[in-house]
Design a protein around this nucleic acid. Structure first.
Lengths: 372, 372
DNA sequence: TTGAAAGCGATACCAG
DNA sequence: CTGGTATCGCTTTCAA
């Protein structure tokens, strides 16, 4: 134990070669004979060589550039994600990281262009929200082939070769929603509905499954209806809900598993069902606040966008700086917001955005938000 | 903007002095004339000098030592806190940090000795759980005077001069507990009890106040009884609860705001009240699992010991390495565990402890747990 | 009290 | 293809 860490010199000396060759071999730079390269790699392993990051950073002038491709602020969600990324970036001790934000105006619009731009710009890594995973998949593949790692936030792009994914835990979200729903509604019989964006999105299908399972095993008195897909179109959500309400007079609860809760609430209000339904929503944004306070929304499941951003950044940075071995799949525990602790969350949000504006002022910045 | 960062050389050149003097002045080392020292400090400020941490780390051989003074594992709570600290320590890029664990066997026993030992050992910083804040206060003061910063975990030591505090948010905990209690119990009238360690502990008094306020404003049908102080003595908790149950036949819920939920549950079972009471507990440990699964415990408020450890470590490290401006008061959002998402938490815990044992093996380590 | 200089470990360039 | 070496910014030691 103890022992001074192995350096390039050590490897060079042990092999009777030069520090330059060792360096080249380790980075498979051009101009090393296959033989020496092998021997160096071998020796590095047996000696347990680990690069000294301080030395590396000190001598190399180049800085990392990472591109953040996300949706423009429809709600505050993506603003929070970006804030989390900025925060994490600024808390890097050895600050040589440059973050470039590329945003697209609407779901699936300009997404590919942003990706292409990032690749052409030869950034070192990409954090991306793949609103249409299937569409983005080839781009992520291309990026990986160009050795540009991609970390997905909020939504996964399966089988795309992405380096990692940071999202809310769908299982935990769906099942806590179901458990709360069952407890809130109580022992009476009835049906329950769930709305989501599209069953083709992995996360949404998983939330549905978790909600279904938990409801089924713990609250057999409640019957889960077929999921309502809203495709993030307000009108679609509204009309589908109205229809739902008409057809299911025994409906006693709705779980809105995406941010699109406003049309659902409107539909419920217009159908004069607001006080008969137990509504559980997702995330926290200005329009939702009064609904929670009034009791129309019993609880909302907060997806912690800021924490998602922070973790995505760290994941990418760690990989870039030392090919880190850590898990590249992070599923965050959702937070629960109800009337009782609503003010707590609002305060926290306002405090965070306030200190953000202050930025390089004297105002003490908050420590990073959660992780996992 | 941009501009190359100011270095010691820059300051020395600007002042026509040597880099050595500048260094000595900046670190108020002995052997600098008051005059030069002033001029250096002045110039450093106007030039906006910020030390290059990579260079500093590279050239200086000394490593930081920090002492972690916590309770021995009564439950898994402190093991988790320590695990979080180890995790955070090992994820430091520029690893020159040594963590020394000093544990004490029981509340208030050996606590002062551990502190004294740490100070005498001249550690660079201390993370401490002050189980008896009043008792530890003079030690923390002494430590601060010796320029050894102290970060408190889980419990604060007010007015002690401690550098910072990481704990669960008491307001959020108490109020979400109250809100859930009210929702779970429903509209019927009745009384509700809360147990805690001692009202003299700030955190406990705050949880009580938050619970009380929320219950009062949202659920006037419920009446909160005087708090039960258990002082972490099982027998005390048990007998006090039995008495409570006898005297309050209209009792319909209990919020156990500390980890000491088992005696309360036993008392309820023995009094044949288990299925009539809505019980909300705190934290998650093996004995609690079956109680949650059986429905005896409706929900438990998880205090995220691992995250507390991680954040405490980061806070201290940041301060030590660059006198960081960040907030030194972190209040974590508690997590909610119910039957529905219980397995999620158990899986997460087991996964984490598994990868911990693996340690330097190939097994991918988990990314840090939450923050804030 | 001050100045000068030898490292720390990796990068990058130049000459062989 | 390979070996040597200046360099990054700071700490630390040694002379002056």
């Amino acid at each position: 134990m103890g022992k001074t860490p192995t350096t390039l010199r050590d490897i060079a000396k042990a092999l009777g070669t030069s520090i330059g060759s060792v360096h080249r071999a380790l980075h498979d730079n051009p101009g090393v004979s296959p033989l020496t390269k092998d021997r160096v790699l071998q020796m590095a392993r047996t000696l347990g060589y680990r690069p000294n990051l301080a030395a590396r950073y000190l001598s190399s002038k180049k800085n990392l550039r990472i591109s953040v491709n996300t949706l423009q602020g429809t709600t505050s969600f993506w603003d929070e994600v970006r804030a989390g990324i900025r925060e994490a970036a600024s808390s890097i001790l050895l600050e040589n990281v440059e973050v470039e934000f590329r945003t697209y105006p609407r779901l699936g619009e300009g997404e590919e262009e942003a990706f292409e731009a990032a690749i052409n710009d030869k950034v070192d890594g990409i954090i991306s929200f793949p609103s249409r995973p299937q569409v983005l998949r080839p781009w992520i593949r291309r990026s990986s082939r160009a050795l540009i790692p991609v970390v997905c936030v909020a939504t996964d792009a399966p089988n795309s070769g992405r380096l990692g994914i940071v999202a809310i835990d769908t299982l935990a979200s769906g099942s806590i929603a179901a458990d709360l729903m069952g407890r809130f509604i109580g022992p009476r019989e009835g049906s329950v509905a769930i709305t989501l964006f599209d069953m083709a999105i992995t996360e949404h299908a998983e939330k549905y499954a978790a909600f279904d399972n938990t409801l089924r095993s713990l609250y057999p008195n409640l019957r889960l209806l077929k999921p309502i897909e809203d495709h993030d179109v307000e009108a679609e959500a509204y009309t589908k809900c109205r229809k739902l309400f008409e057809r299911n007079p025994d409906l006693c609860g709705v779980y809105v598993s995406t941010e699109a809760s406003i049309p659902v609430l409107n539909a419920a209000r217009d159908a004069k069902l607001l006080d008969r339904l137990t509504i559980i929503t997702t995330d926290l944004f200005p329009d939702l606040v009064s609904q929670i306070r009034s009791g129309a929304v019993a609880a909302t499941i907060y997806q912690r966008p800021r924490a998602q951003g922070q973790i995505a950044f760290r994941m990418l940075h760690e990989f870039l700086v030392e090919s880190a071995t850590r898990s590249h799949q992070v599923a965050l525990t959702p937070h629960l917001v109800m009337r009782g602790n609503l003010d707590f969350f609002l305060q926290r949000q306002s405090k965070e955005s306030a200190s953000e504006k202050a930025d390089q002022s004297e105002a003490p910045r908050e420590l990073a938000e959660d992780f996992a």
